[in-house]
Amino acid sequence: MTALNPDYVFVFILAAFLGLQLIKKVSPLLHSPLMSLTNAIAAVVIVGAIHITGEEGATPLAKTLGTIAVFCATVNLVSGFMITDRMLKMFKRKEG
């Protein structure tokens, strides 16, 4: 992986257009939960953090940085999803 792989650009462009299209029609009511949900999904970087922490031959520095990164990403993902859910629960009560 020393140079740019065109496949990745392809994947990126498709996903970016999909993201634009999906959000265009969202009702203004859902702006806050949506923000919270995308925030939680951004925590997917935990995948990279796990790799750095657990891979064979990881230096102590990489392990330390990786462990803190796993911790931070977990905080983001747990609270992100839980907040989104709490917000939507509140919604339901108002409607019904």
């Binding site: 996903a15 970016a16 265009k24 995308t38 951004a42 997917v44």
Partner: peptide, 19 residues
């Protein structure tokens, strides 16, 4: 070289921007 990160990141990047 992780496609999952590219997809999730692009979805977030585009949706955050449009939002």
């Amino acid at each position: 070289g992780n496609k999952l990160l590219i997809v999730a990141g692009a979805l977030d990047g585009a949706s955050g921007f449009i939002l």
